[in-house]
């Protein structure tokens, strides 16, 4: 009987913290970022989410900061408060985390495995996938090595000695398809033109890295939409509110899909609509 009472006490002690947290006050959050539609839309979406949050007007009044983008993230870290970076380059986030910041980040881009799963659905004939990588790309060479799916991944490392144009000319003919990670340094407008035109001439489709590339002529991409980022941020905030520590940094878990139908059609891809694509993708192992 005594043993039973001890067990009950132990159970109460374990459950006590969560019940105490349930009574913790809402988080005071300040959103750091360039003024504009994205920031105002992000704030509105947070307010509309119905979570126990208070969006404050200055950093000083906040319990933590949300930083939108790399610049805001770097600025926010100087405030000495916990920071959740949103749409932050993976390289920057990992660099500051190694230095021991009190922060986490939702990385810009999507997970490699997710993009590959979509590619596999749309291109059942594809085998050899070239992945262009730079020093600040959302995926590292290690991530490519960790991939254990059916496709063969060929890292195409861009460096001052290994210029993008030559790399494409040399490597692309031996590949079936090209996949691009999010990398603001690597894939500017000039690079987009070079990549897309070279790949079209050689009839090798390009997937990724995000929606603007798809609008420009890449076949399709998973991408972190504003809504996806808000939803992911809310998960992080709730976790922080309850445990006073961040979840691990990472990509959004449920990205959106965008397909350029003209390009997909030109390449004879198996595709009827984005919903069907998402369904098929979820069926993949």
């Amino acid at each position: 009987m005594r043993q039973g009472r001890d067990w009950l006490i132990a159970l109460l002690l374990v459950l006590a913290p969560s019940s105490l947290f349930a009574q913790t006050p809402p988080l005071a959050v300040y959103v750091e970022g360039a003024q504009g539609h994205f920031r105002s839309g992000f704030i509105q979406a947070l307010q509309a989410a119905g979570q126990p949050l208070v969006l404050v007007a200055s950093e000083q009044d906040s319990d933590m900061l949300i930083a939108l983008g790399d610049e805001a993230f770097s600025r926010a870290l100087e405030q000495g408060k916990p920071v959740l970076g949103v749409f932050v380059s993976r390289a920057l986030a990992e660099k500051v985390e190694r230095k021991g910041c009190h922060c986490a980040a939702i990385w810009a881009g999507v997970a490699l495995d997710d993009q590959l799963a979509m590619l596999e659905v749309m291109m059942p004939l594809a085998r050899k996938v070239g992945v262009v990588l730079g020093p600040n790309s959302a995926w590292s060479q290690g991530a490519l090595q960790d991939y254990s799916g059916r496709l063969s991944l060929f890292p195409m490392l861009v460096s001052p000695e290994n210029e993008l144009g030559d790399l494409l000319r040399e490597t692309l003919p031996e590949l079936d398809v090209l996949l691009l990670p999010v990398d603001e340094d690597l894939f500017g407008p000039a690079a987009a033109k070079l990549i897309l035109l070279t790949s079209y001439r050689l009839r090798r489709p390009v997937f990724g890295p995000e929606q603007s590339y798809v609008q420009a002529g890449s076949v399709a991409s998973l991408y972190a939409s504003g809504g996806d980022l808000v939803a992911e941020a809310l998960v992080h905030l709730e976790s922080f509110r309850q445990r006073k520590r961040f979840r691990r940094s990472g990509f959004v878990h449920t990205p959106s899909v965008i397909v350029n139908e003209h390009v997909a059609g030109s390449f004879d891809m198996r595709y009827s609509n984005t919903e069907a694509l998402r369904d098929a993708q979820e069926m993949l192992p």
Binding site: A216, G217, V263, S266, F267
Partner: peptide, 23 residues
């Protein structure tokens, strides 16, 4: 994307760039 730059699986059958399945 200009039509000129559109990728084409096949160009020959009808002079228009089109997927092989529609040629």
């Amino acid at each position: 994307m200009p039509l000129a730059d559109m990728p084409a699986m096949v160009l020959t059958p009808a002079r228009v760039s089109q997927p092989q399945s529609e040629a």
